[in-house]
């Protein structure tokens, strides 16, 4: 076999040198960033995100989007027992039994529903996570004690629990948020505790222990970040539940005492009496609730897949 020619050898060296180089800006890809990247490629996630963003946009810019004042009454002369005017010039979806523009009320109603959903879920996540971290970090007796408490909470049907709490706290929207939050707490506590216990026995936690890292640092720096993804997913899904529950509670008359303020659940409750005359009064708010809940659910489901480390590359 003859030796490589001088030119060939040079060329090989050049190619090898180039292969060794790494393109700039290819640094670390964090979990969140790679999850976002995967979300962007997932059509289901995009549909969910579009729905959620759309409703958030509507809620944020309600005063500019609503054609009329949601409290102003008009067309009163047309409203008779047994008749509520439908869609017409200036009132694209018609008016309700008190002559208020339905579209404007739906638009303003998104504010209330989303706010209750978000705040109650955030409350639930914070308290639930605190309980979960305590149980997951300490284990043993603390864990047993907290989990029995959570079990008790879980054994009460969530709607019943929410009703009792809002009755207890009085009829206002803060009570409503707290009531819904309380029903979410055990779910998050259990979820986080479970995934922390699983992560605590993992190799990297033992390895960190073998390197003499202090326990608080192992729990908060290693175990917790790896246990969060089910909680994030559940939070997104819980938003949908919270919105539905908020609607259900206002439907039952436990929501905002100010009945004039537009809120989907209350609108739905109000429309009951006129179902035979104008079913649209119930259909539109119901549709809003369903679509928002669907948006959050779709987003949550694809988030679950995106955050799954098994799909990480």
């Amino acid at each position: 076999m003859s030796a490589l020619g001088e030119l060939k050898r040079e060329r090989i060296d050049q190619l090898a040198a180039r292969a060794g180089q790494v393109p700039e800006g290819e640094g670390g890809v964090s979990l969140t960033r790679s999850a976002l990247r995967r979300l962007r490629r997932d059509p289901v996630a995009i549909i969910g995100a579009v729905i959620v963003v759309l409703f958030l946009f509507v809620a944020a810019f309600a005063p500019f989007l609503a054609p009329r004042d949601p409290l102003a009454q008009s067309l009163l002369s047309d409203i008779r027992p047994g008749f509520i005017p439908g869609s017409q010039e200036g009132f694209p979806l018609g008016v309700d039994n008190l002559g208020r523009d339905l579209l404007s009320r739906l638009i303003y109603g998104s504010r209330q529903s989303l706010m209750i959903g978000v705040i109650s879920t955030v409350l639930g996540v914070i308290v639930g996570m605190a309980l979960g971290v305590l149980a997951g970090a300490f284990g043993g007796r603390v864990d047993t004690l907290l989990m029995r408490f959570v079990d008790i909470l879980l054994s009460i049907p969530s709607l019943l629990m929410a009703i009792s709490i809002s009755v207890l706290l009085g009829q206002n929207q803060y009570a409503l948020m707290i009531a819904i939050a309380v029903t979410q707490v055990p779910i998050f506590a259990r979820l986080l505790r479970g995934s922390m216990l699983a992560q605590r026995g993992s190799d990297y936690a033992v390895a960190a222990q073998a390197l003499g890292i202090r326990k608080s640092r192992i729990v908060f720096g290693h175990v917790l970040p790896n246990s969060l993804s089910p909680v994030i997913v559940q939070a997104t899904l819980s938003l949908a539940t919270a919105i539905i529950e908020a609607a259900a509670l206002s439907f039952l008359g436990l929501g905002d005492p100010d009945l004039a303020r537009p809120e989907w659940g209350a609108m739905l409750a109000n429309a009951q009496a006129f179902l035979s005359i104008r079913p649209e009064l119930a259909i539109y708010p119901a549709l809003c609730i369903i679509v928002v809940a669907l948006g959050f659910t779709l987003l949550g489901e694809s988030l679950r897949e995106a955050l799954d480390p098994k799909f990480r590359r």
Partner: peptide
Amino acid sequence: RGAHMAMVFQDPLSSLNPTVQIGTQVTE
């Protein structure tokens, strides 16, 4: 542990925390 005695484990992937940069884990 870590200062006077240390250990290297069998599976290098699962022994590293997947959510934390290598640098953070070494400097820690």
